[in-house]
Design a protein around this nucleic acid. Structure first.
Lengths: 220, 220
DNA sequence: CAAGTTAGTGTGCAAGCGACACTATGTCAA
DNA sequence: TTGACATAGTGTCGCTTGCACACTAACTTG
């Protein structure tokens, strides 16, 4: 019996995976079908009976893209019935942040048919997935102001200018270098390493490391 | 066939209704059953096929409590399977704010078996409904800082001291009168009326009115 | 060694925030 | 009528915070 029982609905957990590619905030999408001219969709899929919501998001993300062990937070639940053609689906949307230079994640992401798209030039997407991406982008930008969430994009060691480029890519605006450094260092969430990044014909940049990796601090 | 189909789940929309009673932030609950010693639960119920999520919240809220036309926002979606005894239910939680002196709402609320409980002395509740109320309370307190959401609790005309008591009840802390008035008036969301509240043996208080009722401003 | 490129640093001003105490105006009771 | 009581209403000062703003440092490469 495939027809939905009354008041019992399919529920999917879909994930907006953000990562930084070439200083551009990008989203990981998977093809909706195999034909040419297909649309794209968020990685995700149906939640199983007796499965935790966040576990369902992780599982479907791994199935669709190979990614696992990433930072994941619930975003919003979408469920307007007019969003669908045939079968109504409720979507519990999550967003994930992936470090750009995480080799494991990068390898995982490049395995399947998934592709990265810059958030400012997204392809045609299934259902209301474009609205979900927009919602996630706004949430992410808002969280920059009162949390250390942007550190999730950073590799183990990085220069402050790299972090600044992350902020600028998400916010879509340029930031003053001095004010940015003052503000970030005042958070007391980074510490100097003895090392420097030597690349390019210019002065090397001090590398920093996150004091408590994997932990997102909220400050009001 | 009542057993759930695989990957098809019951989804409920439940509502945390906040209102102010006797200067105390309170939540509207309905009895889980009719026996003595029953637990209490949030008003809410299953989402129907082809029904918008927020419409389902409104419909179930009206059915359980008689309330309608209130301020309603999505809170979070809860769905750990261990939260349940028999049947796993996913809950899309909403929160609603009701003006204390709204006679229509007050009348509606007093019709059924629903009862108001101060948020600091809640009864034993079904499933994880206590966690949902806690989550809603934290969200509400956070929104006081960057929005005019508290005005949803106020009647048509009210003194500033009344609004201050709302803030204090939600935050659980006392606020300085002069700083509070400065801050609220600086938002430019209220305007004086020519009238005063004359109650009690003391100086009457100027009554204010909301410039754009029904509209919650966000200021970052 | 000159040109090019990014790293790194401090100050001053304006706005906002919190601490803080007294006068004003009504009611009510003696 | 007057005194006691209760809440309304008002301004300043110091501190912190946010923002604008320009130059020197250090490396690479030709």
């Amino acid at each position: 019996m495939n027809a939905p029982h009354n008041d019992i609905l399919p529920v999917s957990a879909d994930v907006v995976v953000f990562t930084m590619r070439e200083d551009c905030l990008s989203v990981l999408l998977v093809p909706e079908g195999k034909r040419v001219g297909h649309r794209w969709r968020l990685p995700g899929g149906l939640i199983r009976d007796r499965e935790r919501l966040d576990r369902a998001a992780e599982r479907n993300l791994q199935r669709d893209t190979g990614l696992s062990g990433v930072f994941l937070e619930q975003l919003y639940t979408f469920g307007a019935p007019d969003r669908v053609s045939e079968q109504r689906v409720i979507t519990v949307a999550y967003y994930a942040l992936v470090s750009a230079l995480n080799p494991t994640a990068t390898k995982q992401m490049s395995i399947g048919a998934a592709r990265l798209f810059p958030v400012n030039s997204l392809p045609v997407m299934m259902l209301d997935h474009d609205a979900i991406v927009g919602c996630a982008h706004r949430r992410l930008a808002a969280k920059l102001e009162y949390s250390t969430i942007a550190l999730q994009f950073m590799p183990n060691r990085f220069p402050l200018s790299g972090l600044q480029r992350v902020y600028e890519a998400i916010l879509g605006t340029a930031l003053d270098k001095r004010n940015f450094r003052k503000r970030i260092l005042a958070l007391d969430c980074l510490e100097e390493t003895p090392d420097f990044a030597r690349n390019g014909r210019h002065r090397p940049a001090r590398l920093y490391r996150i004091k408590t990796p994997g932990r997102v601090e909220i400050f009001k």
